[in-house]
Design a protein around this nucleic acid. Structure first.
Length: 271
DNA sequence: CCGGACGCCTGTCGGC
DNA sequence: TGCCGACAGGCGTCCG
């Protein structure tokens, strides 16, 4: 499910409901996520107040005094605020129960997500360590991509989906950004010039901003912290539109596979 | 170092 | 109707 806009929509949805609340207990019904949920996730948050709800790439960070809880939604994960106890469904793996009876419930049918306790205030974790720049930060630019891509023969689509290049860009938004920038997804990253990378950086920022404003993209089951779907699906120009006419030029949208992922593009608009 | 394939899971959908 | 393969929003790991 979730790329940066969906994670950010989740962050904004849950933040007002969890900020300042004190954790009463953490219930882990199924610890077998992408990585085994360890005992510190169950034991350490108890009695602690949530002091911040942040995001780094596709990771959500619940900040406690001195420590943090790091959550990844994988392919099919979501977090929901419940105002009171409700019986959990088969994929409701973790509950953070607050002292006032509200809870934050983690649901993830495919269990590709994860939950880690990060001791200490500095957000040091091996999964965060290799991450590249945030797309909205100054550190991310066409120049950065251009320099980093010299000599690379991998496709530009794989290149921008690599979190070391830029965080938060998954299959949907890589596909959409390349369409907006007029770049063919299979083109070798190292054979794209500085000016086109400037356009691509702008396209990535633009498509992510618009998607956040729409509450993200719901393909099947994504909902934000309040249970609302995202409405960016109707604004997708190429993703999931193979065989349909290009909204710009009318020629049929084509699809190929890059790195085991479907890649839709317009052969006329993207070179 | 780089690039590509694999595997982890469950649910859904299309074709036969 | 039922079965079976393909596919799905991610990403660490392994291999050549």
């Amino acid at each position: 499910m979730p790329e940066l806009p969906e994670v950010e929509s989740t962050r904004r949805g849950i933040r007002p409901h969890v900020l300042g609340r004190v954790v009463d207990q953490v219930l882990v019904r199924e610890p077998r996520l992408r990585w085994l949920v360890t005992d510190d996730v169950v034991g350490r948050p108890r009695g602690q107040r949530v002091e911040g709800v942040e995001r780094r790439g596709k990771y959500l960070l619940l900040q406690f005094p001195g420590d943090a809880l790091m959550v990844h939604l994988g392919m099919s994960g979501s977090l929901r605020i419940l105002n009171g106890w409700r019986p959990p469904g088969p994929h409701d793996h973790v509950d953070l129960v607050f002292e006032d009876g509200r809870l934050l419930r983690y649901t993830d049918p495919r269990r590709f997500g994860s939950m880690h306790w990060i001791p200490g205030p500095d957000l040091v974790h091996p999964l965060l360590d290799p991450l590249g720049p945030e797309p909205m930060s100054e550190a991310f630019s066409g120049g950065w991509m251009h320099r980093r891509s010299r000599g690379r023969r991998a496709s530009v689509k794989s290149f921008i989906m690599d979190a070391r290049t830029v965080v938060g860009v998954g299959n949907i938004y890589a596909t959409e950004a390349l369409f907006r920038a007029g770049i063919h997804p299979a083109r070798a990253a190292g054979r794209i010039g500085a000016e086109r990378y400037r356009r691509l950086a702008q396209a990535i920022r633009q498509v992510l901003s618009e998607a956040i404003a729409a509450g993200g993209t719901t393909l099947r089951d994504f909902v934000d912290g309040s249970g609302r779907p995202g409405y960016f699906r109707q604004d997708l120009r190429v993703y999931g539109r193979a065989g349909e006419p290009c909204r710009t030029c009318g020629s049929p949208i084509r699809q190929l596979r890059i790195g085991q992922r479907a890649s839709c593009y317009c052969a006329r608009c993207q070179r």
